[in-house]
Design a protein around this nucleic acid. Structure first.
Lengths: 119, 119
DNA sequence: CGTGGACATCGACAACGATCAATGTTACCG
DNA sequence: CGGTAACATTGATCGTTGTCGATGTCCACG
């Protein structure tokens, strides 16, 4: 194949020759920022285990004593993680008597997973 | 086939009265650790934009000059983010001539999304 | 009331991570 | 051969974050 160098398909307005054309638009910066915030709330082993323990219960609900029992972390640390997950919209808090019950926000995890797969 | 419905619904070794029974097992600690590492690599706006820019190209491939053009970050910083994404298994690097081309590892994002939805 | 239990908040500390300037490395070109 | 362009690596800085002990708050129960 002689390298005739004839590739005038279009006069590409490309910045450089190394670049290939785009099939679609990239993610918007503020969208990336929001998704990164959600992922940051999930990107911790303790918080993932908390979410899993909560969702493993039959009523999708667990109290803090369930978590302090299974995680080898101090109670203030677990409270901190719970706060992060609530503020990120993955858990909701309900106080009944002396106990605080945390439950999964339905669809929140699947929403992030869906957005992530679409990146 | 033996039914796995061997749940002794009676007196479970429940720690406290506040706890409800479990429907399934929680995530394993080392599994949570691995997932957290993957999510940590994704939990950054710049890295999400990099992945999006790469996957927006028709051949799922982009060179560094494409990224320095669109991201308002220094070239060393972008190189750092690319290294993180490669080591996490989301991107692969191919050097051709002077240029380095990064391409998506097929299925890597969907795999994390799937695991995340199953937590 | 007062006491104890369940949980949240505060303050501090150590480790991590995102960023950049400077420099190094490699390939292409005259 | 220089020289330049593309990209990686290094070193340093500085904000962020996971963790814990100490303390505070609220509720239940004698």
């Amino acid at each position: 194949m002689t390298s005739t160098q004839t590739l005038p398909l279009t006069d590409i307005t490309q910045a450089d020759a190394c670049s290939s054309p785009l099939a679609r638009a990239a993610i918007a910066p503020d969208h990336a920022d929001a998704l990164a915030r959600s992922l940051k709330a999930l990107a911790d082993p303790a918080r993932l285990r908390i979410l899993s323990i909560v969702s493993a219960h039959t009523d999708q609900e667990a109290c803090v004593c369930d978590l302090t029992d299974q995680l080898t972390l101090s109670q203030p640390t677990i409270s901190h993680h719970l706060k992060v997950l609530v503020e990120a919209g993955f858990l909701s808090r309900a106080k009944r008597g002396t106990w605080s019950y945390y439950s999964l926000v339905p669809g929140s995890l699947n929403a992030v997973a869906g957005v992530l797969a679409a990146v």
